[in-house]
Amino acid sequence: MALLELRDVQAGYGPVSVLRDVNLAIEADEVVAILGANGAGKSTLMRAIVGLIPLQHGAIFFQGRELTRMSAAERVGHGIALVPEGRMLFPPLTVLDHLLLGSNPSRPSRAELDERLQRIFTLFPVLQERREATAAVLSGGQQQMLAIARALMSRPSLLLLDEPSMGIAPKLRRDIYAALGQLVSSGGLTVVVVEQDASLALRLVKRVLLMQGGRIVRDGSVDAFRSSESLQRAYLG
């Protein structure tokens, strides 16, 4: 049984459909990149999975349970966490406030909460140093680390990352991907990443989905992607 399964999914905004007939199965512990041009439907797919937009048609299953009619809040409670495009942090709240909010859906005990915080601070030491700073005063890279950390605090089984390197200096992008690499190698987490910087994403993932016009037009391994000259030219420059 796939961890996440989408069947004939059609979704969009109001009467407009952005996603068309999307069928997809992702197994537990897989690390998948979704690539595509602007407007291909990558972010819409993420929003549909996490429940931020309703489906116009089709169904979504997670761990065998149908999510289609569940709210976004319920989906987080079932183990899906999104790091949204643009981070969507709360500027006046501190780093610690964000982490506590992130942990809430799973209602951890005090000891478990401390353990999760420790794990986050090991992964992103700068967040421990700046735990009392508000999100408004963090740098772009630190904000992205916080957005990822906030999502991880709910102990998700599936982590969805929407453009995690957008607007961040190259050095910090590498730091963020290094942290994601650590997370993936420790196991127990399925990751789906939407990324404009394909070369960065391909170092992390094993499987690549290509989206075009709201459809998944290609689904294969990283090796297959790398061996295709036309794809290399189109996405890696």
């Binding site: 996490v50 429940g51 931020l52 709210s71 976004a72 809040a73 319920e74 987080v76 409670g77 966490a81 999104l82 790091v83 949204p84 981070r87 969507m88 942090l89 709360f90 500027p91 006046p92 709240l93 406030d97 506590l100 909010l101 992130g102 809430n104 859906p105 906030r150 999502a151 709910s154």
Partner: peptide, 24 residues
């Protein structure tokens, strides 16, 4: 408190609030 954090999250980003499992 947690109540205050949730209230402040509503003001700044409803998408962000949904993403952390807050029932809006």
């Amino acid at each position: 408190s947690h109540f205050g954090r949730v209230a402040r999250s509503l003001r700044d980003s409803e998408t962000g609030a949904s993403a952390v499992g807050i029932n809006l």
